[in-house]
Write a protein that binds this DNA or RNA. Sequence first.
DNA 1: TGTGTAATTGTACTAATTGTATCATTGTCA
DNA 2: TGACAATGATACAATTAGTACAATTACACA
Lengths: 140, 140
Amino acid sequence: MPNKKLLLQIDFRSGLPIYTQIVNQVQAQVAGSVLKPGDQLPTVRALAEELRINFNTVARAYRILDEARIISTQQGRGTYITEIPPPKVTERLRRESLEALTQRYISEAMRLEFSKDEINEMVRNQLKAWKASAQANQNE
Amino acid sequence: MPNKKLLLQIDFRSGLPIYTQIVNQVQAQVAGSVLKPGDQLPTVRALAEELRINFNTVARAYRILDEARIISTQQGRGTYITEIPPPKVTERLRRESLEALTQRYISEAMRLEFSKDEINEMVRNQLKAWKASAQANQNE
DNA sequence: TGTGTAATTGTACTAATTGTATCATTGTCA
DNA sequence: TGACAATGATACAATTAGTACAATTACACA
């Protein structure tokens, strides 16, 4: 199934920068669940062509959205809507999602025959050392 | 006896390149003795088909693993887990694998805006309550 | 048993697609 | 006019895909 087409309405006379309009509208569509986690956005070039603007302008919008953790851009691959915690999940749902996440993690670690102590130790250490920026380059 | 099937879980939106995900997971399974010396890995084409990716992507992952002496690829024959990996390497692998796994977990949890305390607490509780049998088939 | 041919496997090189970085140009406004 | 923000042009880097090829193995058949 082809990607849902991203529908944006740019007003070139509105006084608002184009990239801001893109940011706002994507943000709005995410908030309104028109765009859902995992959805792929058009490539910078495709969207630029459709809107008849320079692809750098799209890239700029995407960069801002990426920094706001709303989308995830991956060089050579594409850009995707990230998982956003629903603003009003109940505490119970929140807890359950952490439970599920943790269970998958522990299950996997145990399958690889790490001991409980090793796991606990590793979690404690990494939590201590955690920096939000480290999320970007977790691949080495 | 047919080959044990290599079980890999690729997340196309994780931000990690596919080949890196393959490397990490094979590495982890070697470290955790899920894959043992002499085990044959799927052919580049077979694994590629299963994961619905290009076989060159698998080949790239295999090349990296080969350079790290974790596997041995042989043109025309197949790829195998290296015999007698030095204990030093194994230990380092084990550590790195758990590190990578844990980082992914924490990164995900933090993105869902759980606090360090919440995460730590959840891990400790689940570890305490862990029953291997209960988790047998929770990975899908 | 030997040998030729096809099948299977990994390799090498290249192309295509994607986002990134840097600087130039344009336009607005004090 | 000068400064600054927005946009555009160009070159680049990372990832994945396409194609041809080489090494090895399997197997039919003389």
